[in-house]
Amino acid sequence: MQTYDLEENGLRGLNAALQAQNAETNRTRWEVVNPKGSHAIAVGLDAPIEVTVKGSTGYYCGGMNQQATVRVEGSAGPGVAENMMSGQVIINGDASQYAGATGHGGLLVIKGNASSRCGISMKGIDIVVHGNIGHMSAFMAQAGNLVVCGDAGDALGDSLYEARLFVRGSVKSLGADCIKKEMRPEHLEILKDLLERAGSDAKPEEFKRYGSARQLYNFDVDKSAAY
């Protein structure tokens, strides 16, 4: 186990050390102490390593992650796991706005609540939130799965493309072109797998599925008021 004191040794040293690891590294487990809400902790990783942050983080923790597993024992600030490609980011506490924004792959697990714009423009990432999510979540989401074990705020899935949204609790309102859809067996399979991997004991049957009505894909002058 490698322990890195962020307060003492600084952010650039941490990210340089983590980014220097590759598939053959034997330094596979890292612990970051004294994060104190710092920004850009453990970003741009590209190796199968495990990084545990002992506290809360600021902006963009785990951004652009590939292969690595990043765990935050506290809460995360805005833009956690932004543009993640693969690997896992797990937040024990809450996440601030635009968690998992533009993510292409991997799994983001938030054990508390996520605030506004969770999964905005997601492009293939899977996001599982054990608690609630805020307004404008999955705005313009293109691919991937957003699973919410609690409630969703206003304008869920506004201008959605092909991402799947699963919500167990209430949805305050649906955004433009987002509709409730039939839950088919293949969706229950996807949900079962994601909930298991995210450590949630929620039952797939308790969720409702939402997705795109596909009415806003192409410009249609008769629908201009809805754009």
């Binding site: 809400g37 809360s56 600021g58 902006y59």
Partner: peptide, 9 residues
């Protein structure tokens, strides 16, 4: 109150 958690640590 803080704009960021950093302010509260």
């Amino acid at each position: 109150f803080g704009s960021e958690y950093r302010a509260l640590v």
